[in-house]
Design a protein around this nucleic acid. Structure first.
Lengths: 244, 244
DNA sequence: CGAAAGGTTGAGTGCTGTCAACGTCCGTGG
DNA sequence: CCACGGACGTTGACAGCACTCAACCTTTCG
């Protein structure tokens, strides 16, 4: 009975407790809120699971919600009419999704892994944000960082060769995934990609064949190892950095 | 004497009057501020001219200031060690420059035309912003829009062919420049590019030769005309849209 | 075991980059 | 007025990188 209550009423005290136990509590936009503010925010939102492959919103369509990723990885994609697709952003735990103060989503948002979200109706969130400067401040800071990251990515897309793209990608992934995993080793050398080859291609603006060829080339040259299709071991980080 | 006073003391009443007479007053981040707030903001900033080709801040270096563009066009660039360069953003009048709450600039900011700026020391601006939610709100809204724009651009860089890039670019430029010019004609068909060919190439992730070839091809096909090296006339907008 | 999804490898082509020559515009100075 | 030089842009020849198409391999799962 209590369980049921928890599931159906996201706006009760127990949910607030969940919030304070939230793993991303310190990094998400709600980090600077106090208990009563958190309670108020909780009243307008709820947690939601979304399974791998499912989309939360679509490019060009009205987006009635915004969300925080609690666990899992999602992708933001833009597409051309003929089906060509580009991944324009990756969303990790504690990252924010959606376009506050706007109506339509400029990208499609899709779960790459099974994902747990904290979802808010956009209009209610907008009202809340406007009256809570500390939350807007956090959101601004995150958005500015995301903009810098997107622009760095533009350099990769516009000016790097396939081999440079792959090397840069592997290095960034090793840093990002280590970051989230909180490993002791400063630069973790073995990690599991949450992406298939096609998604790597969509991230780098390449074809799946080119990605595959570059992976095997790096393996043959001994810079990396690929024990299975998803995990990557960086054997020679220096050499990889030179390629990038 | 009064003139001199105006030039040397940006924080006086006369400057505030300049603000209220500012052409971009309604579109910049200061739009929602009242007279007294504007006065306070004015006390920490000043206007500055920057001539074509000069840079305001450099990639990777500490950026001690942020700014609003009043008039002119600037570019944000990222570069690789070997000199390859990508333009990752264009800054028009009323747009904001710099990274509040951060220390180093992720891009180089350079004037494409002679430019008039409203410059603020970053730390003073940060303090002001933190205590003025309406300004932060404006800034957040602008940043979110800029992020969407950057991501749309990533689709172009990663997935479009040279001809598609050029067509998309010309259409976007015709809209953007018309927007700023406030012409009566809804979709203006003749406009002057503020960029040389090399800069167009840096925007689109192409070489100067490819840009040149695509321009002449479109001219030969009758989709556009190029009366001189800087002005573009769109003759067949439909066909151009099909290419993009 | 068979089928489907995902990944690798090969052959061939074409788009776009590279290198180089030439053309055009414009300001400077003889 | 013309000659010159430099910045900018165009054009051509050629090469190579990455895409396309296709076959085949590997893994997964019913």
């Amino acid at each position: 009975m209590l369980q049921l209550h928890r599931l159906n009423n996201p706006s009760n005290v127990i949910d607030m407790n969940q919030c304070s136990a939230c793993l991303i509590r310190n990094r998400a936009i709600c980090a600077d809120l106090d208990a009563s503010e958190l309670d108020a925010l909780n009243k307008i939102g709820h947690q939601q699971q979304i399974e791998r492959g499912r989309s939360l919103m679509w490019e060009g369509e009205d987006a009635h919600l915004v969300a925080n990723v609690i666990d899992g990885v999602m992708k933001l994609t833009s597409s051309l009419e003929d089906g060509r697709e580009q991944i324009v952003g990756l969303v990790y735990p504690s990252d924010f999704i959606g376009r506050p103060y706007g109506t339509t989503s400029a990208q499609t948002v899709t779960a790459i892994t099974d994902t747990k979200l904290c979802v808010f109706p956009r209009s209610a969130f907008d009202d809340f944000a406007k009256s809570h400067p500390r939350l807007e401040h956090k959101l601004l800071d995150k958005t500015l960082s995301e903009l810098d990251r997107a622009r760095q990515w533009m350099l990769l897309l516009g000016r790097k060769s396939a081999s440079e793209k792959i090397a840069s990608f592997l290095l960034e992934m090793s840093e990002r995934l280590a970051e989230k995993g909180c490993t002791d080793i400063p630069a973790r050398s073995s990690f599991e990609l949450p992406f298939g080859r096609q998604q790597v291609a969509d991230i780098l603006g390449l074809t799946i064949e080119t990605v595959s060829r570059q992976f095997t080339r790096l393996k043959k040259q001994g810079l990396i190892d690929l024990p299975d299709r998803r995990t990557v071991v960086i054997l020679d980080r220096e050499a990889l950095a030179v390629e990038a």
